[in-house]
Simulated scan of single mutants.
Amino acid sequence: MIEFTSAQINAWLSFFLWPLARILAVIATAPFFSNQSVPGTVKIGLGAALTVMIAPTLPAMPDIQVGSMAGLFILAQQVLIGIGIGFVFRMIIAVIEMAGDTISMSSGLGFAAFFDPQSQGQTGVIRQFLVIIATTLFVSLNGHLLLISALADSFNSLPVSATPVSAGFSRQLVYWGGNIFKSGVHLALPVVAAMLIANMALGILTRAAPQLNLFAIGFPFTLGVAFIILLFIVPLMAGPLNNLFEQGFSELRKLLSP
């Protein structure tokens, strides 16, 4: 008859449960993995498969009961670390969404919206268009594989332990969140500047010829200018988006440094 002691069962649980918590937290927050179109069973299965592959390479787990207060503290800490890792790249997508919303509002395309199951709300078409481009580029650059590799390396730089994570972890996340939104302004700046010039030209035109109906010619004119500018800048967006992803991985290395 095969018998197992409580110490053995606790060791098996800690060996699997604590790494699984960090991995599932990353899958739940990181772009591409957290998409609402991916079924929950697939996400859990992916997390379990990654845990089975990564867990044998990890250092020894703390000798602490999983159900104790210390064990629950470790579990919560792993979830927070995983959320922090996914948050780095989720902020990049948020910046691209902000750039899309800024372009939509300045060009008069703010009314063109549809229901987005990811955000559970109305989403502008320009915003969704830029997000699709960024997600495609992220996958084509093997960003999802690099993210999984960084996740596996995080167990060496921030091992599973009862020691609280330093305050620098949260401080670095806050700094990244404030700094990354400058890139969103840079992405939207060409279209916003072009629309400002177009609106100034319309203003001068209406002062020179007051009999013109501004509402009849202004709206199609601004839409046409916006589409022409997007036609020219979209092929050039690979460079700035690639720089954003490189900044994200660089920030992730700083975040996970011991």
Rank of each mutant, 00 (worst) to 15 (best):
I2L: 11
Q8N: 02
I9F: 14
A11S: 08
W12I: 08
W18F: 06
A30K: 00
Q36T: 11
Q36S: 14
V38S: 12
V38K: 04
P39E: 08
V42W: 12
V42R: 12
I44W: 13
G45Q: 07
L46P: 13
G47N: 07
A48G: 10
T51S: 11
A55T: 05
A55E: 04
T57M: 08
P59W: 00
M61R: 04
M61Y: 05
I64P: 07
M69H: 10
G71C: 04
G71M: 08
F73K: 03
I74Y: 03
Q77G: 09
Q78C: 01
F87S: 10
V88A: 11
I93N: 02
I93P: 01
V95R: 01
V95H: 03
T102D: 07
I103F: 03
M105Y: 02
S107R: 01
G108T: 01
F114I: 00
F114E: 14
D116K: 01
Q118H: 04
G124F: 05
R127Q: 14
A134L: 04
L137G: 05
F138C: 06
V139Y: 07
S140R: 15
N142W: 02
G143L: 01
L146H: 05
A150I: 00
D153P: 02
L158M: 07
L158S: 05
P159G: 00
A167H: 11
G168Y: 09
S170L: 13
S170K: 02
R171L: 15
L173H: 10
V174Y: 06
W176Q: 12
G178E: 13
G178A: 11
N179F: 13
I180M: 12
K182G: 12
V185M: 06
V191A: 10
V192G: 06
V192Y: 15
N199F: 05
N199I: 07
A201W: 13
T206N: 15
T206S: 15
Q211R: 03
L212H: 10
N213D: 15
L214V: 07
A216H: 04
A216W: 00
A216M: 03
I217E: 08
G218A: 00
F219E: 01
F219A: 01
F219V: 03
F227Y: 14
I228R: 15
F232W: 13
L241A: 06
N242P: 03
L244C: 02
F245M: 02
E246S: 02
Q247R: 14
G248D: 07
R253N: 05
K254N: 06
K254C: 04
